[in-house]
Amino acid sequence: MDRARLSAIAHRWHPVAAPVSDDALARLVERAAPTGRGTALDLGCGSGAWLLAMLAARPGLSGVGVDTSGPALDAARDRAALAGMVGRAVFVQADAAGWRGEPADVVLCIGAAHAFGGTAGALEAARRHLRPGGRVLFGDGFWESGPSERALAGLGAEPGELPDLPGLLAEVGRCGFEPGYAHLSTTAEWDEYEWSWTGALTEWALTEAGAGEREEALGAARTHRRQWLEGYRRELGFLTAVLHDVA
């Protein structure tokens, strides 16, 4: 199966592609979004959950979401239509790292730092698109504990690939940003996200997939479940923060 299609199916039950609850998402977008009229840009928007939540919270905002995944963008456009946001929310299939567009009042980049080579690259890109005085809503992973050998194996990561939380915040500071409000994902949020990911994919495999895709999808769900439960559960953390540009 195409990886982008598999991921879009796996995120059906939890369209927020991060271990963040709906309540936490609402608080984060409320504190990051500008008041009045303005624009938002979501770099690596996936199926658009963050951008659409921000536009719902601020009727004066319009926004652009950029992602490489066609299936995720199709889902984002469907959600925008259901929410009555056609025209306010535009979704573009492109490489977020190379995107060139108008400056925005708020830039979102959540769980997509890998597309920019890491935290520093993602925040450098966010600044290029940010109007003076704007804010960035940024989300990235860190080691909550460890990492143990099994956690590294579960993620396919090297020991120094992710920082701990102080290290992640230090990198944010080196990039010229000051954290304001932030949210640390809980174990319950991680569990809900991972069970939704594997559960949605499993249900699709058993009820909708054709014969050629059923076993592939089930295999992907089983592998992901094992990597999470036997690997990085309770070791991998996730920070989502409202950042102020102080450079």
Rank of each mutant, 00 (worst) to 15 (best):
R5T: 14
A8R: 02
A10M: 11
A10I: 05
A10E: 03
W13T: 08
V16Y: 07
A18W: 07
P19E: 04
S21N: 05
L25C: 09
A26S: 13
R27L: 15
R27W: 09
L28C: 13
R31H: 14
R31A: 15
A33C: 12
P34R: 14
G36V: 04
G36S: 10
R37T: 15
G38D: 14
A40I: 07
L41N: 03
L41H: 01
C45F: 03
G46N: 07
L51E: 10
L52K: 08
L55G: 14
A56G: 10
A56R: 12
L61Y: 02
G65Q: 05
V66C: 07
V66G: 04
T68L: 15
G70N: 02
L73T: 05
D74K: 14
R79F: 01
L82V: 14
G84W: 02
V86L: 10
G87Q: 08
A89H: 04
V90A: 14
F91P: 04
V92L: 14
D95C: 06
G98V: 12
W99S: 03
R100I: 15
R100F: 10
E102Q: 14
P103K: 12
A104G: 13
D105R: 02
D105G: 06
L108T: 10
C109V: 13
C109K: 00
A113D: 15
H114R: 10
G117C: 09
G118E: 12
T119D: 12
A120P: 00
A122D: 00
E124F: 00
A125D: 04
A125W: 00
A126G: 03
L130I: 02
R131P: 03
G133H: 01
G134L: 02
R135K: 14
V136A: 03
L137S: 03
F138P: 00
G139L: 09
G139Y: 06
D140V: 08
F142A: 06
F142V: 11
W143G: 07
W143N: 06
E144N: 09
S145V: 12
P147T: 13
S148C: 08
R150S: 14
G154I: 05
L155N: 05
A157L: 15
A157E: 12
E158P: 03
G160P: 00
G160S: 06
L162C: 04
L162P: 00
L162G: 04
P163C: 13
P163D: 11
D164T: 12
L165K: 01
L165E: 09
G167C: 11
G167W: 10
L168H: 11
L168T: 10
L169D: 02
L169T: 01
G173H: 13
R174V: 12
H183E: 13
L184G: 09
L184Y: 06
S185I: 06
S185R: 05
S185V: 08
S185T: 09
E189C: 06
E194K: 12
W195I: 04
W195M: 11
S196V: 09
W197M: 11
T198I: 11
A200Y: 10
A200S: 15
L201S: 05
L206R: 12
E208P: 01
G210W: 02
E213Q: 13
E213T: 06
A217N: 03
L218V: 10
G219R: 09
R226M: 04
Q227F: 14
R234I: 00
G237E: 05
H244G: 11
V246T: 15
A247Q: 13
